[in-house]
């Protein structure tokens, strides 16, 4: 069973394991936020711009909001956006890429052309414009990010489909008269999905950074606590209260690193060639 093999390989990667543990911690924090955070994220206390103390572990901001609680609750938004956007991208990319690679011919050419052009479009700015025009709810943000980063997955899946359709078990399925749709769903996609899984962790990391950037510009969802927003709001007070921006940013760094580490571990697990030194040394 390929899953156990992959897991065994993954376990050999120290980066992968660290990333997994880190992510698990962050997930716990996000899931149990109400129990972990001593204050509500928008709760105003009387301690304005207080430095870190026992009462407020990471200090407070200019409205007296506890930074630690903000960081804890902010994890929810980042994880939600990162994961959802990347999954949207994975689904879109996989379907389009599999269709292109498996079908071949003119369909493949058209789709590939479309993907190439799409890749050339600068995405951050596109996201910016769309968010401006269509509103800045989390829903739109996730949708738009996912809708702009899928080409990478499409390319990966297409390459996989091209190889897979020559394999014996696929040809057997065709001979047996299975419908194209079923073949794609049952054979091509499940077998070709692995590089996409690795890439998706990277895209999750990127999506989190993008969302942070949008929030920093003030374009995030105004109702939800978000790390980017905290950095944005802390900016004006940075000289006197560095903790308001420092800790949310550190949280971003840790979360993003966790995803990158996991991605590294997955890449290692998927690549059977263990790198050895050549006659060079």
């Amino acid at each position: 069973m390929k899953a156990t093999y992959l897991w065994n390989r993954f376990r050999q990667s120290s980066y992968g394991l660290v990333g997994l543990i880190l992510l698990a911690v962050i997930l716990m924090v996000a899931a149990f936020a109400p129990f972990i955070a001593p204050y509500k994220p928008n709760e105003l206390t009387n301690d304005l711009l207080a430095p870190p103390s026992f009462k407020h572990f990471l200090g407070t901001d200019h409205l007296g909001r506890d930074v630690f609680s903000g960081v804890v609750y902010g994890s929810r938004v980042s994880l939600l956006v990162g994961v959802t956007a990347a999954i949207i991208s994975a689904i879109l990319g996989t379907m389009i890429g599999a269709l292109a690679g498996y079908t071949g011919g003119i369909v493949d050419e058209l789709i590939s052309k479309f993907v190439d052009i799409f890749l050339m479009i600068p995405t951050f700015f596109l996201i910016l414009i769309v968010v401006v025009l269509y509103g800045n709810s989390l829903f739109y943000i996730m949708l738009v990010i996912g809708g702009t980063i899928w080409p990478a997955n499409a390319r990966l899946m297409r390459a996989q489909a091209l190889t897979l359709r020559e394999r014996a078990f696929v040809k057997a399925a065709i001979t047996l008269g299975e419908s194209q749709f079923r073949i794609l769903l049952k054979h091509i996609i499940p077998n070709g999905i692995y590089p996409i899984i690795a890439n998706t962790t990277l895209q999750m990391a990127g999506a989190i950074l993008t969302e942070a950037g949008l929030s920093f510009l003030g374009l995030g969802d105004p109702n939800t606590p978000s790390w980017g927003k905290m950095i944005f709001e802390g900016r004006s007070y940075i000289q006197t209260a560095w903790w308001t921006s420092f800790f949310p940013g550190s949280a971003i760094v840790l979360t993003v690193m966790a995803f990158y580490f996991i991605g590294d571990g997955l890449n290692f697990a998927l690549n059977p060639k263990l790198k050895e030194k050549g006659a060079w040394e």
């Binding site: 050895e276 030194k277 050549g278 006659a279 060079w280 040394e281």
Partner: peptide, 11 residues
């Protein structure tokens, strides 16, 4: 062959 030429990998 590699040994004769002294071109063995580092391991």
């Amino acid at each position: 062959a590699s040994a004769i030429l002294r071109l063995l990998p580092s391991n």
